[in-house]
Design a protein around this nucleic acid. Structure first.
Lengths: 97, 97
DNA sequence: ACAATAGGTCAATTTTTTTTGACTACCCTG
DNA sequence: CAGGGTAGTCAAAAAAAATTGACCTATTGT
């Protein structure tokens, strides 16, 4: 399908609007995320959806994936600077809810 | 389906993320909107989608519908105060795009 | 060695969103 | 009174997003 891209905020807005993204984002502000922990934290979600959401947030440059090579050897997702720049946007949205 | 509503920004975010909403919003900042004009302005859109988007934006309290009872007798959609409060949110989003 | 945990992928299905086309009804102009 | 503009609605179809269940690999703990 032909994407025409008129409004500059549209793409970002659409990317953020997936069913679990806002919640993932909110949790990422509190602490680094881990996949299975997230799966347990967000009731009603599922692997596939979380995997897709995390990948898209990563591709958008809002989260970054790090392999922690010590002790239990796991993966962490952290907010990037661009991600942190979105915090006030969420706060404003919450203020209007 | 059971909606659980965890993140407060989620509902608003989802409501704003429809395919044509950002563009409708952007145009509404410039001037009052009229249905058929919008249909011509937003290439690729269609009646049904615009009607749905306008209704949802209205229900959310971001736009208000007014019947202009003079001259050509038509309907206008204008940004409400709540709608105007969203302008800086869009600006921030555009800044990050 | 065995089972559990972590972090996923894939294909198929279901649900939601968007689009299409047909159809209304009310003015206004020539 | 015919044609055009305005502002829609409705049902059906198509497209996109979300969910399910099976499967997979690697690392740990016992």
């Amino acid at each position: 399908m032909e994407e025409v891209e008129t409004c500059p905020a549209q793409r970002l807005l659409k990317m953020l609007s997936g069913k679990w993204k806002a919640e993932i984002f909110r949790l990422s502000v509190e602490s680094p995320l881990r996949f299975n922990t997230l799966l347990r934290q967000i009731q009603g979600s599922n692997k596939q959806s979380l995997a897709t959401a995390l990948k898209e947030l990563e591709e958008e440059g809002l989260l970054e994936k790090t392999t922690i090579k010590l002790k239990p050897l796991h993966i962490e997702y952290n907010l990037t600077e661009k991600g942190k720049a979105l915090i006030p946007v969420f706060q404003q949205l919450e203020g209007l809810s």
